[in-house]
């Protein structure tokens, strides 16, 4: 297993956000983590990113416990406009993380331009983030993550702030760019999205969040917004996830 989450629990000032979370993710897998708002999804993601240390349990990446931000990891945040640096051009934003890796300038530039082409933003290299629409800005932050070539890509409600059409386009973009052995964790509260994008869906309960279901998504690898969503498997699975999310209480608390 590439990523092992063992009995992770965390609380903020008396509020227990996560409790006894156990999850395993294989290399190359795309795991959707879905749950009602406030169930600690983002907290879990931040524990994996090494931004916070869980109060209980541990997160193990490739056999080593995560204490600090692991190398080979990228995060796409929901707030693209706050995550991108407004004083840097789109190209420089994408190239900046590679500087930390000590890549020479020409290589950084080439990688940035290639990543921007992948997300369909070839023409926008020299523009500034604030000159772009929300959907385009989120494409830039996805390009920034891709250019970095992370082994593990974490996405925290990445499409929560864009309109429905853009959301579908970006979901397809994720399906298109996955591969190359990149493992992806996508946190979302959107039930359809979790099924449409994921290989597996982990459902978290209401706070304190814990894993109440871990479902395999048996849909063809090649998916599209119309036909995949009308497949009986899709309809069935989204209903099941929906019931779990709405019912949301852990088994011990359910009457």
């Amino acid at each position: 297993m590439m990523l092992e989450i063992e009995m992770v629990g965390h609380s903020y000032a008396g509020h227990t956000a996560l409790q006894d979370v156990n999850l395993e993710v294989a290399g190359g897998e795309l795991l959707s983590i879905v749950g009602p708002s406030g169930c600690g999804k983002s907290t879990l993601l931040r524990c994996i990113a090494g931004l916070i240390r869980p109060a209980q349990g541990r997160v193990v990446l490739n056999g080593a416990q995560i204490d600090d931000v692991p190398d080979n990891l990228a995060v796409v945040f929901q707030d693209y406009s706050r995550s991108l640096l407004p004083w840097l051009s789109v190209r420089d934003n994408v190239a900046l993380p590679l500087r930390r890796r000590g890549k020479p300038k020409a290589e950084r530039r080439a990688a940035a331009e290639a990543a921007l082409a992948t997300v369909g933003l070839s023409g926008a290299d020299g523009m500034y983030p604030w000159q772009l629409s929300g959907g385009m800005q989120q494409r830039v932050s996805i390009a920034r993550a891709l250019a970095y070539r992370p082994a593990l890509l974490l996405m925290d409600e990445p499409f929560g702030s864009v309109d429905a059409q853009t959301r579908e386009d970006l979901e397809d973009l994720i399906l298109q760019v996955r591969g190359d052995g990149m493992t992806i964790l996508l946190v979302t509260h959107d039930i359809d999205e979790s099924v449409y994008v994921g290989d597996r869906v982990a459902v978290l309960s209401r706070a304190p969040g814990t894993v109440i279901a871990d479902l395999q998504v048996d849909l063809p690898a090649k998916r599209d917004q119309i036909t995949t969503r009308e497949l009986p498997e899709f309809v069935h699975l989204r209903a099941e996830v929906g019931r779990l999310v709405r019912g949301g209480a852990p088994a011990s608390q359910a009457s």
Binding site: V69, F77, R82, Y148
Partner: peptide, 28 residues
């Protein structure tokens, strides 16, 4: 913006690098 700082941290930039690359230009 804390999100900008966290983003750079997740890309492996250390404390000083985050001050230099995010905090200082942002406060400029």
């Amino acid at each position: 913006d804390p999100v900008a700082k966290e983003t750079m941290r997740t890309f492996g930039f250390g404390r000083l690098a985050v001050i230099w690359r995010v905090s200082l230009p942002s406060a400029a």
